[in-house]
């Protein structure tokens, strides 16, 4: 996907409520990047955990050895709920990408120096029969918009790493990824 010689460096924050799958969506990115022989780090914000609490991870993907696994200003972010929108909409670097779960986040970004993609991810996921697919819908939009990883690499990561207890949702996850990807196209 990458033009020869172009440097790859993406810092991606995925943020939502505990239970929305922010951490897992980040792991899918990490597996896919590793599969493409890229350097990658995945780091969660951790602490006392509870369902409904804050859940966030930072994924850095690079074609050179990764120094800092954490960033204050990511090149891209997926925000799954309102507190995440408030925290990371201002943080995305100019020229970056913000994927907004517009089903749960009514407000619009006022930034004109980033690409904002509004995806009614929770609605799409509900229509597909499982609201918990919203994370993967958003991931599809982000991956398509960034263009550093092919969608197939995420599909492969789903094949290999979707937990056993969610196995029957594999095809639905891939469908969710593709539905999201449509929003990421220019």
């Amino acid at each position: 996907m990458q033009e020869a010689g172009r440097k790859i460096q993406e810092e991606i924050i995925i943020s939502g409520f505990g239970g929305q799958g922010a951490l897992f969506a980040g792991q899918l990115l990490a597996y896919a990047a590793m599969d493409q022989d890229l350097h990658v780090t995945w780091i969660p914000s951790y602490g006392p955990e509870m369902r409904g609490g804050k859940a966030r991870c930072t994924v850095v993907i690079s074609d050179e050895e990764i120094g800092s696994p954490l960033v204050r200003r990511p090149s891209a972010a997926i925000v799954l709920n309102i507190p995440s929108m408030e925290a990371f909409e201002p943080a995305v670097k100019p020229g970056g990408v913000l994927v907004v779960n517009s089903s749960l986040i009514p407000q619009k970004s006022e930034r004109d120096d980033i690409r904002v993609i509004y995806v009614p991810a929770s609605d799409i996921a509900s229509d597909m029969g499982n609201i918990r697919l919203a994370n993967v819908v958003c991931l599809g939009a982000l991956v398509q918009a960034l263009g550093v990883l092919p969608l197939e690499a995420i599909e492969k990561a789903l094949d290999e790493h979707l937990p056993e207890r969610h196995r029957e949702l594999l095809e639905l996850n891939k469908e969710a990824l593709r539905r999201g990807a449509e929003y990421g196209e220019r």
Partner: peptide, 10 residues
């Protein structure tokens, strides 16, 4: 430290 303990890397 906790960040090396909690992070994932190839």
């Amino acid at each position: 430290d906790g960040s090396i303990g909690q992070m994932m890397e190839p």
